[in-house]
Amino acid sequence: MFSNAVRVRKSPPKQGWRAAVYALSGGRWNPGLSDAEERLREQLGKIRTPLPGPHSVVVSSIKGGVGKTTVTALLGLALAEYRGDRVIAMDANPDAGTLGDRLVGEEQASKTTVRDLLDNLDQIRSSTQLSGYTHLAGRLQVLTSEQEPELSEMFSADDYEAVLRTLSRYYEALLTDSGTGVVHSAMQGSLRHADSLVIVGAPTQDGASRASRTLQWLATHQDSQGLFPYRQLAQDAVVVLSCDRSSPYVDESVICEHFRARCRAVVELPADPHLSTGGIVDLDALSPAARDAALNLAATVAEGFQGRRTTGLAAHGFRG
């Protein structure tokens, strides 16, 4: 009763001249949040979407060099930084992936890898034991790939599933940086257990066409029973266009509209001096535009944490 009689108080600003005015007035004058602060608040609200159980997000592309690993790193860092649950990013690239290099550095990443974990999976009884095989980048846990080509190539769907089953007991959000071959054994394993899919392309003719082919393959691929197991996954996918490669001769709006008609959302990641170095990714070192894009990506992916479950972890007997 009389709930409508209570005046709504504006949230105090924390940035720019608005925050200065609020502080100098002792809180008596509150100009409210700026548009940027309102946008950030909305993004963080989406990023914190609750999870009903472990959720597998696979980041994929059938073209190398378009920023797939960078996108995985940004997504993992943003989710881990602003969510209250546990987030891990796994490098499942069978070609000596570089996710560990981008998150913890090459030397640290090579100390323990997914192969070490596979060799000792039956000994894992707690998150503390599991942490001996992962690396920490901010609040994000990272499981790096094997760097020896012979051992890396041996990473199969069975290996992936065994690792994922263990990780799903201790983490809520599980990100997979996959390889570039959709028919590779490990990639098939990741797709089989995916709850969400992020496809990375570029606003160029080749970068966009490869991403489109990935979506087309997922939508039309039939299994041995004549079913289309990845059709819903493709429809609910988020496409990221990495704009470090672009051309004034390409109409990016045409490319964006093409993907918006075929998936759930499109996110553009602008070129960024920090990311272009190829070094360790740091959210605080990004340009304002790139940081906003990273948070927008995390918010968009997290919106799919509820109500868009596919045949992922829960359907295959994983914890949930």
Rank of each mutant, 00 (worst) to 15 (best):
K10Y: 08
G26C: 07
A20L: 15
R18M: 03
G27R: 01
W17I: 15
A36H: 01
S25C: 06
L24G: 02
V6N: 08
Q43W: 02
A36P: 01
K46H: 15
R28Y: 06
N30L: 05
A20R: 14
R7Q: 13
V6G: 00
D35L: 05
P31N: 04
Q43I: 02
W29M: 08
K14V: 14
L33G: 02
Y22D: 02
W17H: 08
L33C: 01
W17F: 15
G45I: 02
P12T: 10
Q15G: 05
V8H: 10
A19T: 10
A19K: 09
W17G: 12
L40C: 06
A23N: 13
S25N: 08
S25L: 04
L24M: 11
G45P: 05
Y22M: 06
P13C: 04
K10T: 08
W29C: 00
P13M: 03
W17P: 04
L44I: 03
P12K: 08
G27Y: 00
P31S: 01
N30D: 02
W29Q: 07
E37V: 05
N30H: 00
S25F: 04
K46C: 11
G26H: 04
E38Q: 14
L24Q: 11
L40F: 07
G32V: 04
L44N: 03
G16A: 08
V8N: 08
P13G: 08
G32F: 07
G32Y: 07
G16R: 04
A23T: 15
K46P: 01
G16F: 07
R7E: 15
V21E: 05
S11E: 14
Q43A: 09
R41G: 03
V6S: 12
G16L: 05
D35V: 07
E37P: 03
V6L: 11
G45R: 14
L40G: 04
S11T: 15
Q15V: 13
P12L: 09
G16E: 11
L24E: 10
E37Y: 03
K46F: 12
V21N: 08
S11H: 14
D35E: 13
E37H: 04
A23E: 13
A23C: 09
Q43M: 09
K46L: 14
A20N: 12
G16S: 09
A19M: 07
S11N: 11
S25A: 07
G27V: 01
P12W: 04
G32C: 04
V6P: 04
S34W: 02
N30K: 01
A23D: 10
G16C: 09
W17E: 13
P12F: 00
R7A: 15
K46D: 12
L33T: 00
G32E: 07
A19V: 09
G27S: 02
A23W: 09
A19D: 12
S11C: 12
Q15M: 07
G45Q: 11
L44C: 03
W29F: 14
E42A: 15
Y22R: 01
L44W: 03
G16N: 05
V21K: 08
G26R: 01
Q43K: 01
R9A: 14
K46M: 11
V21T: 11
A36I: 01
R7W: 12
L33I: 07
